[in-house]
């Protein structure tokens, strides 16, 4: 099974609520590229992520296809889409250790136990959290939690990343660091990235195409 990706193709996706169109996107995100959807809250930008991830609230109507590695992922279950999700809250599982969060996310074909652990430890080192395996997530700072969340999503070998304002809760310093860490890792793994944000700085730092939605007309 290949974990590389050929890009994420958003093919004529339209999302509407009660018959009113919220947004329409038609775009190919190549590996290592970032597409940023920017708009105020309520503009439906997170809905796009939910649609691609497979969690669209039934109140919304959506059409259009999304292809990843030549597969129309809108036809399969969320479990088979291999989306890597990052939210503004790190959502670490509080009852597991930091390492527990990682091995939980790791594909099951990596065995045995010792191998799983060493890969998780490596992943922690990669995000600058060497030796954090046994730590309780609750004792971590906000920035550390965000990095664990990143390590967790990367270790699950996603085919693409869906980022839902992942930096908005961090303070300015950490924010820049974290952005860099995320985009750099995405590039290294050749992942296409879809970022939604309301923050222009995030959008600019992503260094890719920006689609603005909401109050302005949607356009390139």
């Amino acid at each position: 099974m290949s974990y590389a990706s050929t890009g994420l193709k958003i093919d004529g996706v339209r999302i509407s609520l009660n018959g009113r169109e919220l947004l329409a996107v038609d775009h190919l995100i190549n590996p290592k590229e970032v597409l940023t959807i920017m708009g105020p809250s309520g503009s439906g930008k997170s809905t796009l992520l939910a649609y691609i991830g497979g969690f669209l609230d039934p109140a919304f109507e959506a059409e259009g296809d999304v292809y990843c590695s030549d597969m129309n992922i809108t036809l399969v279950k969320p479990q088979q889409r291999r989306a890597g999700l990052l939210f503004q809250d790190p959502l670490l599982f509080p009852h597991m250790s930091v390492g527990g969060n990682l091995v939980f996310a790791m594909p099951a074909d990596i065995q045995p136990k010792a191998e799983r652990r060493s890969q998780a430890e490596q992943a922690l080192t990669d995000v600058g959290l060497d030796g954090f395996f046994e730590r309780d997530p609750d004792t971590l700072s906000g920035g550390q939690k965000a990095r664990v969340a990143l390590a967790r999503v990367l270790i699950s070998r996603p085919a693409f990343l869906l980022l839902d304002e992942p930096f908005s809760k961090l303070d300015a310093d950490r924010r820049a660091q974290m952005r860099e860490l995320v985009f750099e890792n995405a590039k290294r793994r050749s992942l296409p990235v879809l970022l939604v944000t309301h923050d222009r700085e995030d959008a600019l730092a992503a260094n890719g195409t920006i689609i603005e939605v909401g109050s302005q007309t949607a356009g390139q």
């Binding site: 991830g53 497979g54 989306a83 599982f93 009852h95 597991m96």
Partner: peptide, 27 residues
Amino acid sequence: AAIKSSHLTQSLGYGRMAGFLLSTWPS
């Protein structure tokens, strides 16, 4: 934040029930 956790675990490939039970239910 059970809904988001649930989305997260499903994206990680977990079945709906297993993902929820292993990740969210303990909390």
